[in-house]
C-alpha cells in the first residue's frame, strides 16, 4: 500500500523521485544480505543438495552415482519407513495435548496477585533450557522398570509398573509425556505474553455484564489467544516431526537401541535417517527419507494454514 501511495506523485517529478525508492531498496538488500547469505549457504543450498542426493547412490567414502527414482521406489516398499512415519505422526498428534495444558498453566499463572509467580515461571521454564540429552538421560532413569522412581512411587499404591520405555505398549506414551514436559514451559511463556496483550477493557466490560472468571476465560481469553495457539501448533508440529535427540538417547543410543523390544514403536523418521546416513552408509537413501519428511511437513503446514480460517480469530 505504502509503495503505490508514494509512487503516484513520482509521475509529476519523475527523475528526482524515482531514484529514491531504488536506493532504498538497495540499502534494504544490503541490510538483509548477511542473513540472506547465511540462509542460502547454510540452509537453502544443503536442502537443494539433499534433494539432488536423494536421486543418487553413495559409496561409504563419498562418490555417488545417479540412480533416478530407485531410492523413492525402495522407500515406498520399505515397511520400516512406513512404521517410522506412523510413529512420528502419533508422537506429533499426542504431543498436541501439550497446547491446552500450556494454556491452562498460563491462565493460572496470569491470575493477578498470585504470589511467587516468578518461581513458578522459572520452574516451568527450566526443562526448556535443559539439554534434551540430559532430559532423556534423566527420564531413562525415572522410567527404569526395576529401579526407577516412577515405579517406586507406583509400588507404594500397590501398582506393579511396566518397563516404560522397553514395553511396546507403553513406550510411545512415556515418550510423549517427556516431550510435553520439556516443551510446556516454552509454550506457556508465549501464551502468557499473548494473554498480557489482551486489552483489560474486554474483561472489565465482561465483568460489568456479569460474566464470571471461567466464562471470561472461554469467551475472551481463548478466542483472543487463537493466533498464539496457531503459531504454537505450527511450531510444535514441525518440531515433533523432526524429533530425534530425545528418542535417540531414551531408546539406548547407537545400534544397540534396536535390541529395545519397543524400538519399532519408537523409531522416528529422523532416527531412521540417521541410521541410514551414518550407520549403514546408505546416504542416498537417507536423503530420500528426509525429502519425504520435508514433503510431509510442508503438507501438514499448508493444511494447518488452510484450517486456521475455521478457528483463528484475528482482531
Amino acid at each position: 500500500m505504502t509503495t503505490t501511495a508514494e509512487r503516484r506523485p513520482a509521475l509529476a517529478g519523475r527523475t528526482a523521485k524515482r531514484r529514491r525508492p531504488r536506493t532504498e531498496a538497495l540499502w534494504g538488500y544490503a541490510f538483509i544480505a548477511p542473513t540472506g547469505l547465511g540462509l542460502t549457504i547454510f540452509y537453502l543450498w544443503p536442502v537443494l543438495q539433499t534433494a539432488y542426493f536423494s536421486f543418487t547412490e553413495w559409496g561409504a567414502f563419498g562418490g555417488h552415482t545417479w540412480t533416478g527414482l530407485d531410492n523413492y521406489a525402495r522407500l515406498l516398499g520399505d515397511p520400516e519407513v512406513g512404521q517410522a512415519m506412523l510413529n512420528t505422526l502419533m508422537y506429533t498428534v499426542l504431543g498436541l495435548a501439550g497446547i491446552p495444558l500450556a494454556i491452562v498453566f498460563a491462565a493460572l499463572l496470569n491470575r493477578p496477585g498470585l504470589r511467587g509467580v516468578s518461581v513458578y515461571r522459572t520452574a516451568f521454564f527450566l526443562p526448556v533450557v535443559t539439554m534434551p540429552v540430559a532430559v532423556a538421560m534423566l527420564w531413562r532413569w525415572l522410567y527404569n522398570g526395576d529401579y526407577g522412581l516412577v515405579n517406586q512411587m507406583l509400588a507404594t499404591v500397590g501398582v506393579d509398573g511396566p518397563n516404560w520405555i522397553a514395553d511396546p505398549a507403553t513406550a510411545m506414551y512415556a515418550l510423549v509425556v517427556v516431550g510435553i514436559w520439556s516443551s510446556v514451559g516454552y509454550n506457556l511463556i508465549i501464551f502468557l505474553a499473548g494473554m498480557q496483550a489482551i486489552p483489560k477493557e474486554l474483561y472489565e466490560a465482561a465483568a460489568m455484564d456479569g460474566a464470571g472468571r471461567v466464562r471470561q476465560f472461554f469467551r475472551i481469553t481463548l478466542p483472543m489467544l487463537s493466533p498464539t495457539a496457531f503459531f504454537i501448533s505450527i511450531v510444535s508440529v514441525i518440531g515433533s516431526l523432526q524429533l530425534f535427540d530425545l528418542v535417540f538417547v531414551m531408546t539406548g543410543s547407537g545400534q544397540s537401541a534396536r535390541a529395545n523390544p519397543a524400538y519399532s514403536r519408537l523409531q522416528t523418521v529422523v532416527q531412521l535417517f540417521y541410521e541410514r546416513a551414518f550407520v549403514t552408509d546408505d546416504r542416498g537413501y537417507a536423503a530420500a527419507i528426509v525429502i519425504a519428511l520435508l514433503v510431509l511437513i510442508a503438507a501438514l503446514t499448508i493444511a494447518q494454514f488452510r484450517l486456521q480460517r475455521r478457528w483463528v480469530h484475528y482482531v
Binding site: 527404569n144 522398570g145 511396566p162 518397563n163 520405555i165 522397553a166 514395553d167 535390541a259 529395545n260 523390544p261
Partner: peptide
Amino acid sequence: DLKTMTDT
C-alpha cells in the same frame, strides 16, 4: 527378560 536388560 529383554525388557529388564534394556532398562538395566
